[in-house]
Design a protein around this nucleic acid. Sequence first.
DNA 1: GTTTATGATTGACC
DNA 2: GGTCAATCATAAAC
Length: 356
Amino acid sequence: MDDQTRMMTGLTGLGGLAQADVGDPDSVRKQQSLGQPQQDIGDILQQIMAITDESLDEAQARKHALNCHRMKPALFSVLCEIKEKTVLSIRGVQEEDPPDPQIMRLDNMLLAEGVSGPEKGGGSAAAAAAAAAAGGSPTDSSIEHSDYRAKLAQIRQIYHSELEKYEQACSEFTNHVMNLLREQSRTRPISPKEIERMVAIIHRKFSSIQMQLKQSTCEAVMILRSRFLDARRKRRNFNKQATEVLNEYFYSHLSNPYPSEEAKEELAKKCGITVSQVSNWFGNKRIRYKKNIGKFQEEANLYAVKTAVDAANVSAQASQANSPATPNSGNKYLIINIPDRCLGDKTSFKISTFMN
DNA sequence: GTTTATGATTGACC
DNA sequence: GGTCAATCATAAAC
């Protein structure tokens, strides 16, 4: 004979109530009219229903009275039976949810941006990458970089403090509910599995709140990032030396002003800019030169002279090294022909310069 | 305040 | 993927 059967045998004439719908007042009234035990059960049920309308102290007193009531085991067994029926209907409910892809996306993003996870990586790396893309001078980049990092650290701090609050609230609420259920398990049948399920429900609810926090944090990071990237649109002119290096290359390769990848890298290194900036510069230069050759003629002459002077100097040094006794024999003219695919068939211009 | 110069972006093309 | 051409956005010059 199991516990429930034993309990049931202790309930003289209560079998009918166990089968009845206890939620149905008519049914309860019908049973009450059957005699004293039924009336007791009816009283208990009414007391339970009334508990919610009472003050906390009254409810506690009533609860205590209920726990000590001689018919409590009978009520307990009735509840067991009802539960046995209802639990059957919810057994099919899935126990575990698969990981939410949305939350996984948010987690990955927060990790990549350096908001969650270890503090040293992520954000600074992202900032460094963005700063590199910005291509400003190292000083400017580091100012923007530190600004970005400071703001990201602020977001990170808020995120973690909010997360901590949520976790604390979740843990407090879970404990509260578990205590409540344990307490209630004295009056009604509650299995540990049910408590577990309830905890899972609470965690799900709190994780949906957490998702909102993660979502708004992601948005904040995106806004910060877009502002930071917008900042790179603040154009800064290359320094004079960089422009000279680029112009020298351009005008000395006027016949084919398309630097190879290696040449671009070399120029980028010399100028302290990125390869893509070199490409941009040459793209702009080619198109602007082509559009207005006249305007650039003077500049072209200037750089042609400069190149010629440099070449002559190198040549002079070489010949001096070969025949040191040879004296400088006075003035020379240097003629430079610059055929240019950009010039098309318009002209190829000559630069004459006087050299001492 | 307006104009010019210039670095960056974008879309089409090869 | 690299280049051209148009365009944007902003620094610099006036």
